[in-house]
Design a protein around this nucleic acid. Structure first.
Lengths: 384, 384
DNA sequence: GTGAGTTATGCAACAGTCCTGCACAACCCG
DNA sequence: CGGGTTGTGCAGGACTGTTGCATAACTCAC
């Protein structure tokens, strides 16, 4: 009964906190800004903004820029303040069956370091965890970031994750029922959010990808395995058990059957989907035909999703995304007879870092959720 | 970019308005209440609440009760105030192919008058509108409610409705692309919200039905035609074109095929579904078998919905709801092999007024949405 | 180089809102 | 009829945000 809780009065301190958060948010969205500019954009008066700015600066959230203004204008030069994005860091992790992506970002979301690594799919669950922990320690050390400087961390894994962060699927052997967050928090004392990979992908697309302007988005991972991440009303929809979007199981939709058409041979070390994408891009007519048959096969499943949700936008991501724009008319053609209305379809442009970027976004969301109640100086997110 | 707008500062007047709305909301949830009780429940101080109460009373939103307190307690008897639910009315309409339901409710949602009528399915679109307008005028007149006393109206219709209130489906002949809201607003000068019937049913179930404690709900209309209303995170999910939940179209799911099994003969004037429900309740083994085959037929479609959304609760409504609890184990059995996790399933208990009650809820939502910005005395919703 | 124009700043006075505390009123009970 | 208890109403004080004005700093034109 979240509505019930909202029925609480606010006093002057709450108003102050609200306005502090407003100023900080405005500064997070655009930095640097002049104090007067902040006043007009927030609708507060200048003396008020000034007081809030002073308070935030004392707490370390913001700082005055010393850099001279870019364009020259008449009048007294404005004092300009900026969000201190370097005051803390967040980490985004994408760990799959055979690859690991690490991203380090500042509090404004700017990625300051990235690392990608492939590893054998045959690793045991324990080995995979140890690999991740080792690489993560090294990665942070290389960047001169201490474990205490990480405020929050997002981790994308294949398969379902329940709302407590426990992995409940069987995609990665031996990871079922694993509390990965706790294991990672032993090394890096911060909040860790484990989440299904496609769910993070849709966050990333909405943040900096193909879906920035849409609030009802389905992100479909097209490849050997099919699953979807859903954003509804601008928020990630996980489902009761974290299983939203897992249409692949239903035999009537033929998603698994369609996927088998992609079990082709590629070059050594190259997966079938990569080979197909390459061939299609090279203009191979036969490959295009295979792709088209695959899309025809997955169309009923995607149609079911479209009919169930009627999304504004469909983002295609995953192993076949490198094929690019040719995917759109092909899939649209197959969806048209199966749906009432084919939504706008676009291909992801985030490449292989999409999930990790979504993990960064997830971590930043956690930091932002605590912003309204800044009382002490900095570091709002308590470890775990 | 709704988030952008939220980055505006609040001044003291805004704080006041916020607290006024808080007190009013608390009083809407429970009436009457003592002023001191309001102070503790809202977290505001008593002098503050007192001032707000005085203001709201002057505007006509609340009033002091003259009725003596129920239980007697020591000490000075508390002054008690109540929400003036009789200050305005809302109307809920459910108009289908061959039936019309009208509900009149006070501002607290209490239904004060109801009317139900069946009419021939052969009516033309224009005749149907005239019937509705005539009955509505008469209904209000009988209750002594003038057109100006209706603050807001919700209307449930079969078929899809887009986000501007235009009907875009072909379920009712000649109603395609109809702006029903405008037609009704000619008679009753208030905001009119036209909405798909199942979407309103899910609102009703969440408000006063089987789904009061769940925030992720799918309401499935089981009957000759199948469609669903979706509630996600406590809010109605309509979809971009208002088509969310319309899985019936997809041939792979066999929903339409399954529905044909219900084309039975009933008694004169009784539909096939009603006859089937009656027979099952009477213990007819053959009827139970027909029902079971029907449920097996619709299971893939419902499974697709469950897999796509992973809802907390599934509410079964519609023509077969009178069958009651026997539906639950049958459907559960058919869903189990098709899904990862079968959600809790319950049968609607709202009967034939579900959609109209949801229309009332929709109308009340519109009134509540305007509550925070009460400035003048009463009547926050301007006509259209 | 100097003055006019422009823009930002900082201080002061003012108004609005909420809170705390205390004297008082109204009622029940013995 | 008086004590205990509970709600009421009124001050005083603290905090927040706003308006207004004099001042500071810079650009531009002459």
């Amino acid at each position: 009964m979240a509505v019930h809780d909202r029925a609480r009065g606010h006093d002057l301190a709450a108003l102050r906190g609200l306005n502090t958060a407003v100023v900080l948010r405005a500064l997070r969205q655009e930095s640097p800004q002049t104090v007067s500019g902040l006043a007009t954009s927030t609708g507060l008066s200048r003396p008020t903004v000034e007081a809030l700015v002073e308070e935030l600066a004392a707490q370390g959230w913001i700082a005055e820029t010393d850099a001279p203004a870019a364009g020259r204008a008449p009048g007294r030069p404005a004092r300009r303040v900026r969000f201190r994005a370097e005051a803390g860091h967040v980490v985004g992790v994408d760990i799959g069956l055979k690859k690991l992506v690490l991203l380090l970002a500042r509090l404004d979301g700017q990625v300051v370091a990235r690392q990608r690594e492939d590893f054998p799919a045959e690793l045991t669950g324990a080995e995979r965890i140890e690999l991740l922990r080792g690489r993560l320690r090294r990665f942070l050390a290389d960047q001169g970031v201490g474990p205490g400087d990480v405020w929050s961390m997002g981790v994308g894994v294949p398969g379902m994750v329940d709302d407590t962060g426990r992995i409940v699927s069987v995609v990665v052997p031996e990871w079922t029922d694993l509390d990965l967050a706790r294991r990672l928090a032993d090394d890096i004392p911060c909040r860790v959010f484990v989440e299904n990979d496609v769910n993070l992908a849709v966050l990333a697309e909405h943040w900096r990808g193909a879906a920035v302007l849409a609030d009802d988005v389905a992100c479909v991972l097209v490849g050997r395995r099919i699953s979807c991440g859903l954003m509804i009303d601008g928020r990630l929809h996980r489902g009761r058990r974290g299983g939203a979007g897992e249409l692949g199981i239903l035999p009537q939709l033929g998603l698994d059957e369609a996927g088998k058409a992609l079990d082709l041979d590629g070059r050594p070390g190259e997966s079938g989907t990569d080979a197909l994408a390459r061939a299609v891009r090279a203009g191979d007519a036969e490959a295009l035909d295979v792709l088209d048959r695959y899309l025809a096969g997955v169309a009923p499943g995607i149609a079911a999703l479209v009919l169930a949700l009627d999304p504004e936008l469909l983002v295609l991501s995953g192993a076949l995304a490198p094929v690019g724009d040719p995917l759109v008319p092909l899939l649209t053609g197959h969806l048209r007879p199966l749906t009432l209305h084919v939504p706008r379809i676009v291909v992801s442009t985030l490449g292989r870092e999409g999930v990790a970027l979504g993990a960064v976004r997830r971590a930043l969301d956690a930091v932002e959720a605590e912003l309204p109640r800044i009382a002490g100086p900095l570091r709002p997110t308590a470890p775990l």
